[in-house]
Amino acid sequence: MFIISLTYKTSLENVEHFIREHNDFLEKYYSSGHLITSGRKEPRTGGIILADAHSKEEIQDIIKEDPFYSNDIADYEITEFIPSKYNEHFKSFIKNS
């Protein structure tokens, strides 16, 4: 699993200009099963995406399709983690290694 932390590097007005395309990007990867949850940071300085992929390289390739990436709206920090404890309601997201 991966935590993707986006930090805006432009005005919120510019962010809003690309929000529809960003949401379309998110929907594509929710449909493919790569994304688990996403949302904005509070205060609104960026966003967080929880994703499932085989590798960090796969996540990097996915990010390249985000309009926030291609239009230089946000910086991305990717953190890989291996869940060791989880709420049973989320068991379907956990892969045993």
Rank of each mutant, 00 (worst) to 15 (best):
F93K: 00
D72E: 11
L6Q: 03
F25H: 03
K91E: 07
H54Q: 08
I73F: 02
S92V: 00
N14V: 13
G33Y: 09
I3K: 04
G46D: 08
Y86L: 08
I82Q: 01
I59W: 02
E65W: 05
S31L: 15
I73T: 05
E80T: 13
R40Q: 13
I63R: 04
E21Q: 08
E16S: 07
F81G: 10
R40L: 12
S5Y: 04
G47K: 00
I36W: 03
Y76I: 05
N87L: 12
G46S: 08
H17L: 14
N14M: 05
Y30K: 05
I62Y: 07
L50P: 00
T10S: 07
N14Q: 14
P83H: 01
T10D: 06
S55E: 06
L50T: 06
N71R: 14
G46V: 14
K91T: 05
F81I: 05
K64M: 07
G46I: 12
H34F: 09
I59E: 01
S5I: 12
K85L: 13
S70H: 11
T7R: 14
E58V: 07
Y86E: 05
F90G: 09
Q60K: 15
L12G: 01
H34V: 11
R40K: 15
H22L: 14
I49Y: 02
E27G: 01
E42M: 11
S11R: 14
E42Y: 06
I63Q: 04
G47A: 02
D24K: 15
A53M: 12
S70P: 02
F25D: 00
I82H: 03
E58R: 07
I3P: 01
E80A: 13
S31T: 15
E13A: 15
S38K: 04
K91I: 06
S5T: 11
G39A: 09
Y30D: 12
N87K: 13
M1A: 11
H22F: 12
Y30C: 09
L12S: 05
T79M: 07
M1N: 09
A53D: 06
I3V: 14
G33N: 08
Y30L: 14
R44D: 05
H54L: 08
S31F: 10
S38T: 15
L6A: 07
Y29A: 08
I3Q: 06
K64S: 13
K41E: 02
A51Q: 13
P83A: 10
A74P: 11
E57A: 15
S70L: 05
R20A: 09
I59T: 01
Y76H: 05
H89E: 13
D61A: 06
I78Q: 04
N96F: 09
D75M: 14
P67D: 13
T10R: 10
E16L: 06
K85C: 10
N23L: 14
D61L: 04
S55K: 15
D72A: 09
T79R: 14
E80I: 10
S31V: 11
T37H: 06
K56A: 02
T37I: 15
E65L: 11
